[in-house]
Amino acid sequence: MSELAISVKDLTKNYGARVAVSHATFDVPYGTICGFVGPNGSGKTTTIRMLLGLVRTTGGTGEILGESITHPEKYLPKVGAMIEGPAFYPALSGKENLNVLAALGGFSKERVQPLLEKVGLGDRGNSKFKTYSLGMKQRLGIAAALLPNPKLLVLDEPTNGLDPAGIQEVRELIRDLATDGTTVFVSSHLLSEIEMISEYLVMLREGKVIFYGKTAELLAQQQPVIVAKSKRTTDLKKLLKIAKDSGHSASIIAGAVHVISDSSFAAEFNELAFDAGITLSSLNAVLPTLEETFFEMTGE
């Protein structure tokens, strides 16, 4: 049996002349949490839809849980998914919506209430879906994705609309599921969250996979950054010029100058700033975050 929960090769989707996904190739091992990131319009949702059999592929092959994506009926009973936000029947209650899906999948109705409790909707299960807040709708979507007790869970922006406590709950839920052996494939714009939970990462840009593999390997490949803040914000531009004149790539981000360089330049940078009459309020050498790496790799 394959050790990979998801394995795709040269997956392509064209809409007429427009290439939505171009020769995407990546693997996701079993039992891992894999982040799926990319700018808006990079092809993430289209890729997920191809994996779930909602959209025909133009080319390429893929396997989910060891079964070809040309036969979704063989693997979808073991897959839970929430794609592009929760979609339910407004006039039915949360509980009834889950009962509809449970009946469709041949699952026992007895699973519904515990799932509602798990996502924090235990006391609102009988309210109509149209009365739910955005966060509650997201929670119901996650509950629906968990109905089949899935081996693979595909979540598209699961924390959208959730408050910080809710985001933390989802993070813990995903971790618990992975501990139990479920593979989680999660797409999110909250890169800080992805960085916290994902051991694996697939990154898309303009329909192409620009990275797939361990998150730690990606971050280790990035150059360290020196982050310097000046006492006076009016000195930032002068500080930026000093860094660039020293032959380093630099930019101003969030009120600080970020210089692509390892820590060996820190002392020299401090001296150059002092000579220019600039007082630094902080100077640190850090590894770039996933967010910074994402911006650099996708050019966003």
């Binding site: 839809r49 779930l52 059999g53 909602l54 979704p72 009926e73 979808l76 897959v79 839970g80 998914a81 794609i83 592009e84 936000g85 979609a87 339910f88 029947y89 407004p90 899906l101 469709l104 999948g105 629906a144 089949p148």
Partner: peptide
């Protein structure tokens, strides 16, 4: 038609691909 307007068709197809 409501399966299209509500977006629930994708849920149906994940649970029943046929």
């Amino acid at each position: 038609a409501q399966e299209y307007t509500y977006g629930t068709l994708r849920n149906l197809l994940v649970r029943q691909p046929s």
